[in-house]
Design a protein around this nucleic acid. Sequence first.
RNA 1: GCCGGGGUGGCGGAAUGGUAGACGCAGCGGACUCAAAAUCCGCCGUGGGCGACCACAUGGGGGUUCGAGUCCCCCCCCCGGCACCA
Length: 829
Amino acid sequence: MAYDFQTIEKKWQHTWETGGTFNADADPGREKFYCLEMFPYPSGALHMGHLRNYSIGDMMTRFLWKKGLNVLHPIGFDAFGMPAENAAIKSNTPAAEWTWHNIEHMTEQLKRMGCSYDWRRRVETCNPDYYKWTQWIFLQFLKKGLAYRKNSPVNWCESCATVLANEQVINDGRCWRCDTPVVKRNLEQWFLRITDYAQELLDDLDNLPGWPERVKIMQRNWIGRSEGARLSFRETSTGEEIETYTTRFDTIFGVTFLALAAEHPFVEKIMSISPKADEIGEFVKRCAAQSSIERSAAGEEKEGIFTGLRAVNPVTGEDFPILIANYVLMDYGTGAVMGVPAHDQRDFDFARKYGIPVKPVINPPDGEILDGETMTEAFEGDGITCNSGHFDGLPTARAIPEMIEWGVEKGLCEKEINFRIRDWLISRQRYWGAPIPIVYCDECGAVPVPEEELPVLLPESVKPSAGGASPLASDEEWINAPCPKCGRPGKREADTMDTFICSSWYFFRYCSPRNDKEVFSKEEAAYWMPVDQYIGGIEHACLHLIYARFFTKFFADLGLSKAREPFTNLLTQGMVIKDGAKMSKSLGNVVDPDEIISKYGADTARLFILFAAPPGNDLDWSEQGVEGAHRFLNRVWRLVEENLDLLKDASGAPLIPMKDLKEPRLREMKRRIHAAIDAVTRDIDVEKQFNTAVARLMELLNALHQFRPETPEEKVLFREGADALLACLNPFCPHVTEELWELSGHGEPLAMLPWPEAEEEALKADTVTVVIQINGKVRERADFPAGLAGDELKQRALELPGVARRLEGMEIVKIIAVPDRLVNVVVKG
RNA sequence: GCCGGGGUGGCGGAAUGGUAGACGCAGCGGACUCAAAAUCCGCCGUGGGCGACCACAUGGGGGUUCGAGUCCCCCCCCCGGCACCA
């Protein structure tokens, strides 16, 4: 017979809500802790990934409250985005209505989970009170010259009918949301200058010891810093200087061609003077038509076309042909590459295909002498410089810096650092997002909406369409607005902001969510920020987690906050798996959290999730595992219920310290209680291994279950154990533990009672099992008094009959003794 | 290709260089019951032996050490990230 979790959970949820139990206010006199889980998109209902995320965060929050900290634990909704729009198109429900309905439903679900949020602080990014400040932040970027408009080839998703930022193009050029191959389009779009922060974003990763190494590595890769040199080659007929960027300036003597991207500005000039203009034009068109998937595939056949023009190597005076090549990208470096086929595989493949000479300028360190005629692949490794004038004989490690140094002195090149990360494209041709607060005027150009006129409200009547144009442009009433500068008729910016903007600063807003005067209160942010513990999925490693760092640095530079990093500790939880695959609707392997909570209760769901795997691992969903967790809670319930009288008898009696317990059985019970407290505390606080913490509590329950107290002394001890079990289990299963705590005669609720502390004296064992090895193999075990020193331990081990028998006729070489652990006898013969 | 993270029973997973497999799931045997469920007790890495025991065993191969799942070297496999970035 199961305990009545339905009634109990409702009861305590009601108590917490009406009592504001988990509301937190800034209090400079108290140590704070900011515990945050990534806020959900209100897609309709919580899924298991959410349940896991919020179970982890809630358990930690409750633990930290009990440790005496002032804990900020807020939640909100990342409420702008495509699904609302799609739902609007499909079911003819306004996006706002759909979204707000989901928000209310999911709020109810979070409450049913027993989550300890400060609900006063809930924010929704689609709320004008919120996006007013999203727009304000955009204006600050604009003011600082960090927001700008540019016409450029941008990533376009046909299915989402909008552009995407580089970070949002994943899996070989596909849309992060719908997996559709992305194409390039030329559009005038808004960008944020995240590249201004590239170096700091990279450097500060070293100041984040609380982040998983792999997330930091992913960000380093994404930022992609490279050191090299910029140098120009003069085109012989026009005298035009064509700039290139190289990380291998030491190969400058090996340049045998120059390759331009099809979009390179000089290509137009070439067409105007070249007799081959038609042919070249056709090639350029073909390149442009290739999707970014085709163009960025490493195995793709390299194609090029001779332009008939030539350029001169400023170092050697040699001249060589200029080509246009499909493997040269316009948006990295200068869009032009110096071709060194002997030492770059791509250049090599290209040169062989088009009969361009290969000129080695580095020989391998093993003494081999390369021959450009017969080489079958490029030599890209380090070696000894050759065919390079007075630099011959230098090893690569010295050649690169020394040759750049020389080039800079001679005025041939400049040192340059390049980044792979690009400026953040934030325009979206969508309806359900924060409007970009700009009015276009024929006279004044793009004019920012004055701050006092914010928010630029999103009209709720607009019907989003599946087509390509920005839906807002179709709202005549909305789109027409006077120029804020000159008052003449103008048109509003019809694009909305990338929703990743909204989620880049919500953790600041939580600090003062109802502030209608400022983006956030400096004082409140100074107290709460940075977030001490952030919990979420790893899929945001190069998206949200970079953007949020960028915004935080920008706020610091505006003087709004001192924090230069938003998240001190990051926990990336694994996925929830079933039948070997991530839960997904298309695979039909989803388990509905509502059903689990209805059938077993929130405590059971939370316990299973935390017990089944360490938080970083993928979690294999198992209904039998859930039943196991439920069985455990029923046993806890019975342990208290069946011993209620006894527990009440013992209430109020002072605990018996270890030194006053004589009987071994009682001393052992006491030790187990405190060993459990000690281990659970360490697992939660230090190791972040919640599965083993639960295992220790299961052991404690098993021990209590077998204890069967009779004497008054035993009853006091039993009560101590039951109390410890409930107190330690409370952050995991807050409802059932709270109910049992009350039932067993405690006045005050558990939630805010101090976390139990292990008694040092009670952790020491009286006797220990020592293992006796002979030549490293376990041969005997013996219970000895704890703390025997080496010599005595050896003595007693050798006296054991089993050991003595085995050692007969053997010569003892040496004996290793580890107190309280083992004795290893090394023998010969 | 480069950079990470992994590989331990039937399964999820434990193990400061010191008893490999905690805890749970599944399975097997027993008690209770007219019976079943629930519950309780016991067994549960593989092979051998009636047995106390013995051998083997943490992806494979070497090494360091009295002692290696753990440290070092080489290799295989799986997962993730990046990848024509000049």
